[in-house]
Design a protein around this nucleic acid. Structure first.
Length: 829
RNA sequence: GGGGCCGUAGCCCAACGGCAGGAGGCACAGGAUUUAGGUUCCUGGCAGUGUGGGUUCGAAUCCCACCGGCCCCA
């Protein structure tokens, strides 16, 4: 390519297939597992995709970002692990299989191949040799193995749990599939139903999941840490035992406000809890069961909504307030959830809004026990949850809220009626799914031996070959219909046994995949301990904020368990985290129903890979959303043309060959810009401020253009220096154009192996700077001063400034603020 | 209802508490090149930082309130 040939608009698409082929033949981005490799190791991880079809705009942004960071570390000479795989189990494959009368694997693997091809076209620097798919038996074998280790440690257990059940579709629905209490698919009313389910005991790790976040501070986005803290939801308070009339055992409640115990005027149990049924007096049983039938139609979110009119049923029984012996009525209501705390609460209507709303509906007493200087809640209907001074509370009277909490816990503890306690919002992780396309739970049930884990040497428990209508929901997991598969023999006694017919939540698969990448074909365990020790934890994890809570929390949980098993020597999997924003269109998330989707393939075809990647990077800070309607990829096509033209002008100049001329002989102004740009871009990339880094590259291109056009021409060694630095730095974002430029400049491919340019400190420092002279904070003069100027000298220079003197207008000088060498502020008296 | 984030030219975005010659780009206008309203190169205008207080020698930046938008929990 010569300057003449690029006279027309540069077309970055023209060089793509040439470089795709040449890169495919070169092994550039493989991580070196040799323990003796002396290079620093960097593990750069992109969240792996779900193969729902081809890559979309969101992928384009996320992988452009991760790839820029990976390529940076490659160029810095690190031994980089930048793997790719697929989160390949999940419901969409199952639905597609039912629709098309095929096997979910057909759809899954076909989509994976489409995405893999798109990744290669997109020029992402993956180590393809480590590719994995969570639906491969030699992957889910180890998911099952890990389940069994959790089981052995008592961290996996079976219990009854509530699920959203659609009576028409005969299936369990995820919370997201329940819209306003109705089934998303058929519109029928969803009910809550009890099923026996497997759980991981993540609550046992709640305190560690919370405490270890201190190490992530500043390296993970603040809002993600905040979301995780809120999700874990630690609250301090007390457990208080209430005697129940005509019952031997007391019922314990958790409260964050034990100070208001004297204000408890009634007691509420979750209507649909076993406790409600047990406590209910015989004459109220039918009222309760009618009520429970209504409650089961509601989702948790509706039940806890503050706007809903409170409902409930009196159970015909009373509890006894342990501090004052008062008889308080026991009610069943839906605003208390059966699986939160103990499923029962003490109600203090004066100081809790939901309790007050309930009390006002049913005419229950409201007793103020905390003077907060606010109007009486019984009159206003507004509870007073704030701080104040205790009243009507016996020994607590006169104490502050904080002091009363401490005192009442002492009193309760002395009398054996309660104790200080911590409660977490976090629930155990329900991992059973009544689905086919997931990892089977490796447990069998034997009439004689009960629940028996599948021995390690019988793993994997491979999915049976079901397809099409066999996967349609029929009231139980599709696996239950595979009777030949279900029937097995008990590993313990050899007698007849049945397999568990549920599969694991796909979040289990994704909670350890980053460990598998370190030794993807290891056959003696989920990962080779030494390989993980070398590569982990992940240095930088890039992915969407939609995983801010569950995936990241589950992965952190897994690593902590593995740490306790002594299989890893760290406790946090991801040292640093970057959440890229969403790509939206006209202010809204892209969706089929809005019809505002933008097709990535069409964008790539229209503008080329480099321009799309660069648009994604340049649009905004990585964590901000990109509104595609505001973007103009052609602007970046133009920029790529400017870069290519600089390279072409260098190559067209007869004198200069690669490595032939000393840059020191070139234009000194351009050299300063080049080295300052290298310095700045380096720091910007390390801070993932990539949009600003691109702006700096644009400035460097303009500076090179100025030098070329103003006389020295493309033959000036400083122009070559600039063009070479540009090609390398640009390769983070626009690998095709960068590679082409590198070749034009006379170098062997690949630019990915060229090494990151080094800034010459002598060229980065400025010898003179402009010093601003202010009078009372207003700009009055500028002085060109040596960068090394002393404070006293600068003060004298500023005071001698004529414009400053004029601005002072004869007033005296009270003080002078000197910030050498940039600023002097003269404050008048 | 609780918690958090964000408001800078027509648009996307920069600015260790210190010059808004706005870093960069889009769009727009003008000029040069050109057969060309296309390409390339050059030049230019456009905001005073959502509003009102406060802290400070100095505030887009820190604090408070309000307005508007977004996110998480409920």
């Amino acid at each position: 390519m010569t300057a003449a040939e690029t006279a027309d608009r540069f077309d970055p698409r023209a060089i793509q297939s040439k470089w795709q082929q040449r890169w495919a033949a070169m092994d550039i981005f493989s991580a070196d597992d040799d323990p003796a490799d002396p290079r620093p190791r960097t593990y750069l991880l992109d969240m792996f995709p779900y193969p729902s079809g081809d890559l979309h705009m969101g992928h384009a942004e996320a992988y452009a970002l991760g790839d820029a960071m990976a390529r940076y570390y490659f160029l810095r000479g690190h031994n980089v692990l930048h793997p790719i795989g697929w989160d390949a189990f999940g419901l969409p494959a199952e639905n597609a299989a039912i629709r098309n009368n095929t096997h979910p694997a057909d759809w899954t693997y076909a989509n994976i191949e489409v995405q893999a091809a798109s990744f290669r076209q997109y020029g992402v620097s993956f180590d393809w040799s480590r590719r994995l798919q969570t639906c491969d038996p030699d992957y889910y074998k180890w998911t099952q193995w890990l389940f069994l280790r959790f089981y052995e440690r008592g961290l996996a257990y079976r219990a009854d749990g509530y699920v959203n059940w659609c009576p028409v579709d005969q299936t369990v629905l995820a919370n997201e599939q329940v819209i306003a209490g109705k089934c998303e698919r058929c519109g029928s009313e969803v009910v809550r139903r009890v099923l026996t389910q497997w759980y991981f005991k993540i609550t046992e790790y709640a305190d560690r999941l919370l405490a270890d976040m201190a190490a992530l501070e500043g390296k993970w986005p603040d809002r993600v840490l905040l979301m995780q803290r809120n999700w874990i939801g630690r609250s301090e308070g007390a457990e208080v035992a209430f005697q129940i009339e005509a019952r031997d055992d007391p019922v314990t409640v958790f409260t964050t406000r034990p100070d208001t115990l004297y204000g408890a005027t009634f007691f509420v149990v979750a209507a649909d809890s076993p406790l409600a049924a047990e406590l209910c007096a015989p004459e109220q049983q039918s009222a309760l069961s009618d009520y429970v039938a209504e409650v089961r139609k509601l989702t948790d979110i509706e039940r806890q909504s503050a706007d809903r009119e409170k409902t409930g049923v009196f159970l015909g029984r009373h509890a006894v307030n342990p501090v004052n012996g008062e008889r308080i009525p026991i009610w069943a209501a839906d605003y208390v959830l059966p699986d939160y705390g103990t499923g029962a609460i003490m109600a203090v209507p004066a100081h809790d809004q939901r309790d007050l709303d309930f009390a006002r509906v049913f005419g229950l007493p409201v007793r103020v026990v905390l003077d907060t200087d606010s109007p009486d809640p019984a009159v206003t209907g507004v509870a007073t949850p704030g701080a104040g001074t205790l009243v009507n509370s016996g020994p607590l009277d006169g104490l502050s809220k904080q002091a009363a909490i401490a005192r009442i816990i002492e009193i309760l503890a002395e009398r054996g009626l309660g104790r200080g306690a911590v409660n977490y919002r976090l629930r155990d992780w329900l991992l059973s799914r009544q689905r086919f396309w997931g990892a089977p739970i490796p447990i069998v049930y034997c009439d004689g031996c009960g629940e028996v884990p599948v021995p390690d040497d019988q793993l994997p428990v491979v999915l049976p070959d079901l397809r099409g209508q066999e996967l349609a929901p029929k009231g139980a997991s599709p696996l239950a219909a595979a009777t030949d598969w279900v029937a097995t023999e008990c590993p313990k006694c050899g007698g007849p046994a049945k397999r568990d017919t549920d599969t694991m939540d796909t979040f289990v698969d994704s909670s350890w995949y980053f460990l598998r990448y370190c030794s993807p074909s290891f056959e003696h365990g989920p990962f080779e301990v030494e390989a993980v020790r070398r590569w982990s934890p992940v240095n930088l994890y890039v992915g969407g904020v939609e995983h801010a809570i569950l995936h990241l929390l589950y992965s952190r949980f897994f690593v902590k368990v593995l740490h306790d098993m002594r299989m890893v020597d760290f406790t946090e999997p991801f040292t640093a985290l970057v959440n890229q924003g969403q790509v939206i269109n006209h202010g809204k998330a892209m969706s089929k129903s809005l019809g505002n989707g933008v097709n990535l393939g069409e964008q790539l075809a229209a503008h080329g890979v480099d321009a799309i990647r660069l648009t994604m990077i340049f649009a905004s800070p990585p964590e901000d959303d990109i509104d595609w309607a505001d973007m103009n990829p052609d602007a970046l096509v133009k920029f790529l043309g400017r870069v290519a033209r600089v390279a072409a002008d260098v190559a067209a100049a007869p004198a200069a060959r690669a490595g032939a001329a000393d840059p020191a002989a070139g234009d000194p102004d351009l050299r300063k810009v080049t080295h300052r740009t290298i310095d700045e871009v380096t720091r910007l990339v390390e801070a993932t401020r990539l949009n600003v880094a691109v702006a700096r590259l644009m400035e460097l291109v303009s500076a090179a253009r100025r030098t070329i056009d103003s006389g020295p021409g493309g033959g000036d060694p400083a122009v070559r220096e600039a063009a070479e630095a540009l090609a390398v730095m640009l390769s983070l974002f626009a690998p095709y154009t960068a590679e082409e430029c590198w070749e034009i400049l006379g170098h062997e491919p690949s630019v990915a192996q060229a090494g990151w340019p080094t800034a010459d400190p002598a060229l980065v420092v400025q010898d003179t700077v402009v010093c601003v002279v202010q009078v009372d904070g207003k700009l009055r003069d500028r002085l060109e001063v040596p960068a090394s100027v002393g404070a006293d000298e600068l003060r004298a220079l500023a005071l001698a400034s004529a414009p400053a003197e004029r601005a002072l207008a004869g007033r005296g000088v009270r003080t002078v603020i000197v910030r050498a060498p940039r600023l002097v502020n003269i404050v008048s008296s």
